[in-house]
Every structure is written in C-alpha cells, then in structure tokens.
Design a protein around this nucleic acid. Structure first.
Length: 307
DNA sequence: ATGAGCACCTGAACGC
DNA sequence: TGCGTTCAGGTGCTCA
C-alpha cells in the first residue's frame, strides 16, 4: 500500500507523537507480525523477546529510508543517571507492507480487528498507545541493531536498500549509473529498492508517464539523459505527493491520526486503464509487468524500437 | 551475479 | 444468495 510519500506522512506523525516518550509495555496480538512474509513461524519466546527488548526503552526519534521506517531507541529506564550514548545502537523497525498502518490512540479506544501489536507509551503523566494495524500481515515489526549503509545508520534488515531521492545521502549520479546497467525492463528496475528506494507501483507508473518513457524500455539500451529524466520525475512526483499527504484510494491508507492524503486526484495514469490520456486523449493501456499492474499511454510513451 | 517467478495474507469487487 | 476468480499501494526466497 504505502510508498515513500505515504510512509513519510506516517513517520512525521509518529515522530511528533512519540519522540521523547518511554515504552512502558507492549502487546503482540498476532505473532506473525514479528516475522517476514517468508519467515512466519514465530514462537512464544520470540514474542517475549520482542516485548522485553522494547519495554523500558526511550523513543529518541522516528526515521525513514525509502519505505522502511524505524524508531531509534535509547537507554533502558533505571539504567541510572548515565547520559544517552553518543549514537543510538538499537532500533524498532516498522515496515507497513501493503496494508499496514500506525495509529495513535488512547488506551480506552476500541481495538480495530486488524490490530496486530500495541506499544504503550508514557511521557510524564501522559499516556498513549501506538497501534500497528495490518489487514494482510505483509508488514513487519522487529528490534534490530543499527548498521551503516549508504551514508547513514539504518536497521540491519534495511542495509541492502539504497538511499531514497528525498534524503541528503541520495547521490543522483550513482543512482543513474546503477540504473543504466540494468537489463530488465525499466518498470521493474524502478521497483528495485537496491537501486533507488521508496518508489512503488503507483509512483513508478507516474514517473514513467511524466518522463515519456515506455515501461518496457530497457535501461541499458536507453539514453542516460532519458533515464535521468525518469529519476527526476520520480523525485518530483513523490515530493509533490508528500506535500498533500500522499495517495489514499480508500481507508486502508491513513496517517497516524486517521487522515487520508489527497494525491489520488493528481494521478495521471495509475488506475486509469481504459480512460483517455490527460495529455493526448489516447486510451490508457494496462498490462502486467513483473507481476504488477502497469498503466501507460501508448502514444506519449512510445514503445522501444529494439524489442 | 542477475533476473524471473512465486509465496506470503485478507478482503473487496466482479461474473455467473 | 452463493461461489469461484481476480485484484490490491511490497518484499524476500528460490531457482535458472
């Protein structure tokens, strides 16, 4: 569900509500949320381990790279008056998958039926809950050490993803060089989080349309200036989407306060198969590429000649 | 090493 | 009304 702009909208809210709070307890309602989609077998000791690892920790900040978000965790309570270490070493990784949400609630609020885990937080006399709600359980929670990758500290399981276009560590020249080596179709390459992170199915289609590139073009056989245009388009479209809170088709995507974003109104091709192109009136085509629904204008995005 | 395909889930919408 | 099929904003493992 959520791509970079949606995850960032959530991160901002999580940071505002939770930075400086202490985790006083946790509840794992569905242990599968602690696994990945391919490692679903979670035993009771893993649940206990997760709860023990986060309880008593202070939340320093909510951070993000691409679609991976995490809370940096500080010293245990009761560890004495020792100062905070110079750099945090532990993180609570949160990946929203296709249908994940983080919501801030009062303890008394009704529990939504897809709630998979709850963190109890306190700041002074104030208490609140951060709830992880995920219909499909493609999302994930986990306590992880922080490691260096692409110029900064990230949770260990995010060490393979590249910088995203909206972070200072992003190097456009490096991303372009990596992209230009790919022999798979450009639509699939844009979804490869190890080249550029944060781009998902919606923004890949939007970026290709805005740059006038056919989704089946092969990066290794495409002019670099055109590849640079696609990366610029991806950066711009995600930045524009972030400015209005991201894209929400339905109640599945909302920020921590339950609010929707408005970028669905600005989508030019995604979800418009069979409708007229906003630029030239040609019928927008929809086809499956790499198992993902892909939308494009066959006139504005000319098919590559070499296929 | 790269790339393709599929598995992992739940629920909504659609056709018959 | 009910049943089967298809689709959905992502990732990671396995195999060629």
């Amino acid at each position: 569900m959520p791509e970079l702009p949606e995850v960032e909208s959530v991160r901002v809210g999580v940071h505002e509500w939770t930075a400086g709070t202490t985790i006083t307890g946790a509840e794992v309602i569905d242990p599968r949320i602690l696994g990945t989609t391919s490692q679903r077998r979670i035993d009771a000791s893993a649940v206990d381990g997760f709860i023990a690892a986060v309880t008593g920790r202070r939340i320093i900040a909510a951070e993000r790279r691409g679609k991976f978000m995490w809370l940096t965790l500080g010293e245990d309570l009761g560890a004495g008056p020792a100062a905070e270490p110079a750099a945090p070493e532990l993180s609570l990784l949160v990946h929203l998958g296709m249908s994940g949400q983080l919501r801030v609630h009062d303890a008394a609020d009704e529990i939504h039926r897809h709630t998979r885990a709850i963190l109890r937080l306190e700041r002074g006399s104030e208490s609140l809950q951060l709830r992880f709600i995920d219909q499909r359980i493609f999302g994930h929670l986990g306590v992880q050490p922080l490691v260096h990758a692409y110029g900064r500290l990230v949770p260990a399981s995010a060490n393979h993803i590249a910088a995203d276009p909206l972070e200072p560590a992003f190097e456009p020249g490096l991303a372009l060089e990596q992209l230009a080596r790919k022999r798979t179709v450009v639509k699939s390459a844009l979804l490869d989080q190890s080249l550029v992170s944060g781009i998902g199915n919606i923004y890949a289609d939007e970026a290709l349309f805005r740059a006038g590139i056919h989704p089946l073009a092969i990066p290794a056989r495409t002019r670099k200036s055109r590849l640079a245009a696609v990366l610029d388009s991806a950066t711009r479209v995600m930045s524009d989407a972030l400015a209005v809170g991201g894209t929400s088709f339905d109640a599945l995507y909302v920020n921590v306060n339950g609010e929707s974003g408005y970028f669905d109104r600005a989508l030019l091709v995604y979800g418009r198969g069979g409708q007229e192109c906003v630029r030239c009136g040609t019928e927008i085509e929809k086809m499956t590429i790499g198992g993902r629904g892909s939308h494009f204008c066959p006139n504005c995005q000319k098919p590559p000649r070499y296929r």
